[in-house]
Design a binder for these strands. Structure first.
Length: 636
RNA sequence: GCCAUCUUAGCUCAGUCGGUAGAGCGCGUGACUUGUAAUCUCGAGGUCCUCGGUUCGAUUCCGGGAGAUGGCUCCA
């Protein structure tokens, strides 16, 4: 994989970056995401300084790839305004894998128009345009951009004093810079216009929608090619495509978009995963709860959801004169259980987990396969503890989470520590101690972390974990969040040693995040070739000819008795076709059986990963598979 | 929700310059009885997303709607 594809947020064409991939937030109203979301880049992780693997363009010091991208954006704006006179320009920054520029066209343009723009850009680049910086007063700037309403607005937002302009080839843009000295530093074979998209001016849906042209852009051709290759690979692994091919799940627009139907094979996966999840939780001192799917409105008024989160909740249903809401979160229900009795400090910490299915309204335009849905199951838990316990509890959660990810085969994990935003609840002291306990935990576990200043939810600081998948994309999965708000709002208490009633600390956490989204990420990470223990079909027996169907059935019976998920392909297709089908279904072991095997009570094992096949005694094979399953082995 | 593109068989896609449609895979059937990635035969299967308009006639052109896909944070 090239440096370029290694660069931070590798996201497929299909999924946009987002800061919102939060595991869950109690009040996510200020962000649009919830548990779902594509590969995400946290706030502390903008591409600003990154991608420093920029290589030297031609002579002299290396030009950071960001500068190249930004300059290429100017070149594109020049090309567009030349080809479409009268087009108003917006902004054109560098982004993770290239750049974009926002325009307001008189007539809409089509994707077919991109090649012409690209061609004009190449012409400009090869013409060797010099980039010149010029500093002017605000008044002068206003004059130069008299016909550019968006630029004028930007100018008004700037501080008084000098304003810098960059000019190349007669095209002037309001810009802070820096830029390449000469357009030739942009490689004509290292960028590619990607797509046209609508984008609200300044991201505000009340402002006009501009036309955004996206482009990939790197320092070298090899990096661009590497990136395109990664995107191609991502497309092959697309959870929607594999979900269909491997018969794992479906969605049904006619029955409601954004809702997942788990098919038998997806169901096998999920049951295995959840059984393991439950086992692990009991082993780690959790208790498992089940709570209702709907609840009366006072719960959501008290929690604050109806104030902050209403837009993401489904409309209420009236039952016996009361309004009930489908739950967008599980927390109020867990609190109801807590409030059912008086708690002593001796009861704490309480670790309560639930695979809780929640419903959240998501705008139709953001729905995406398993990654962004309207109904999903959180692997949610709430830890209720004393202030003294919180540090250990956080460390425990972090350890637990790492154990989970390691078992599932994810090694590359980063943490993001989000601190107090401007608007927040809870005394500063609590924030400080909470943050300190988060920091100590990541330090102790030796996980690399970045700070996300002001990125916490208003109700408390948090740690998010991002995992890197097999093709280098990062996904925000685990979230561990302090909550100073709900204990207050619901008046949660415990009786301490000194007989005083005190407020407990509450920590929300989700490890996998959403079972649906995790499934999507896992499908893409493994390309559908799950580890044996999670594979819906673990073994396929393939007789070389129908004369050996009986032996194939015997093999199936024997393995099935041992609890292995196995079947035989007794269709009248050729053996080669059966192998092909089983391989396409990513079945880990294909057992080819004929006269030889029948005579010796053996099986010829063909592995999904293409390693050399081996012939084993049936007992031996059985023992091997059972061991792999028991160990949750990632190997076959 | 907004912008752009798209919606034809279970899946992947052709096609009709306006005269109601095809392939491959899959499924069913018959034959063949095979040693590590596709055996051959025949057949079933479509309100061409939906509603309306134009037209003698619309899957095709126009408009409304639904859904899908790519975007809608990246600050000059």
């Amino acid at each position: 994989m090239t440096g370029a594809t290694r660069a931070r947020t590798r996201h497929r064409d299909g999924i946009r970056d987002s800061v919102t991939g939060e595991g869950f937030s109690v009040f996510a109203a200020d962000r649009e995401g919830s548990v779902q979301r594509g590969p995400s880049r946290g706030r502390g992780q903008r591409a600003r300084k990154g991608d420093s693997m920029a290589s030297s363009s031609h002579s002299g010091a290396p030009t950071p790839v960001e500068t190249i991208r930004h300059s290429a954006a100017h070149v594109m704006a020049e090309a567009v305004t030349k080809l479409y006179p009268g087009t108003r320009v917006g902004i054109g920054p560098a982004i993770d894998d290239g750049f974009y520029y926002d325009f307001q066209f008189d007539k809409p343009i089509q994707p077919e128009d991109l090649p012409a723009i690209e061609k004009e850009m190449r012409r400009i680049i090869q013409g060797g345009a010099e980039f010149r910086r010029r500093e002017v007063s605000k008044a002068e700037a206003r004059l130069s951009f008299a016909s550019e309403p968006f630029k004028l607005e930007l100018i008004e937002g700037l501080e008084d004093g000098t304003i810098s302009l960059y000019e190349q080839d007669g095209f002037t843009d309001l810009c802070r810079g820096p830029h390449v000295a000469n357009s030739r530093e942009i490689r004509t074979d290292a960028f590619k216009l990607r797509s046209i998209a609508g984008a609200y001016w300044r991201g505000d849906e009340k402002r006009p929608m501009l036309t955004r042209i996206y482009a990939y852009c790197f320092s070298t051709k090899a990096e661009l090619e590497g990136h395109l290759k990664m995107l191609e690979e991502a497309e092959k692994r697309d959870n929607r495509k594999l979900g269909n091919e491997l018969k794992l799940f479906s969605t049904h627009e006619e029955a409601g978009p954004g809702l997942i139907y788990w098919h038998p094979k997806g169901g096998r996966f999920r049951v295995e995963l959840e059984n393991w999840w439950r086992q692990e939780h009991y082993a780690n001192g959790y208790e498992i709860l089940y709570t209702p799917h709907i609840g009366k409105s006072w719960l959501w008024e008290t929690s604050g959801h109806l104030g902050f989160y209403k837009g993401n909740m489904y409309s209420p249903m009236k039952i016996d004169e009361d309004n009930y809401y489908a739950k967008p979160m599980n927390c109020p229900f867990h609190i109801m259980i807590y409030q059912n009795e008086t708690h002593s400090y001796r009861d704490l910490p309480l670790r309560w987990a639930e695979l809780g299915t929640v419903y959240r309204y998501e705008k139709s335009g953001v729905l995406h396969g398993l990654m962004r849905v309207r109904g999903f199951t959180q692997d949610d838990a709430h830890i209720i503890c004393t202030p003294e316990q919180v540090e250990d509890e956080i460390l425990e959660v972090l350890r637990f989470s790492l154990h989970i990810w390691k078992t599932l085969g994810f090694k590359d994990i980063k943490a993001y520590l989000a601190t107090k935003p401007a608007e927040s609840v809870g005394e500063k002291e609590r924030w400080d101690t909470a943050l300190e306990s988060l920091r100590k935990a990541v330090d102790k576990e030796g996980i690399p972390y970045e700070m996300d200043e002001g990125g916490g939810a208003f109700y408390g600081p948090k740690i998010d974990l991002k995992i890197k998948d097999a093709i280098g994309r990062e996904w925000q999965m685990t979230t561990i969040q302090f909550d100073f708000n709900l204990p207050e709002r619901f008046g949660m208490e415990y009786v301490d040693k000194d007989g005083l009633h005190k407020r407990p600390y509450m920590v929300h956490r989700a490890l996998l995040g959403s079972i649906e989204r995790f499934f999507g990420v896992f499908i893409e990470h493994t390309a559908g070739a799950f580890p044996v223990w999670l594979m819906p079909d673990q073994v396929m027996v393939i007789p070389v000819a129908s004369a050996f169907d009986d032996y194939a059935k015997k093999v199936v019976a024997e393995l099935r008795k041992a609890g292995i998920r196995v079947s035989a392909d007794l269709s009248d297709a050729r053996m080669n076709a059966k192998i092909r089908t089983a391989q396409g279904q990513k079945i880990p072991y294909m057992l080819v059986v004929g006269q030889k095997e029948a005579d010796e009570a053996a099986v010829a094992v063909r592995f999904r990963d293409g390693r050399d096949q081996v012939t084993l005694a049936l007992d031996e094979f059985k023992a091997r598979v059972l061991a792999r399953i028991a160990e949750k082995s990632l190997d076959l």
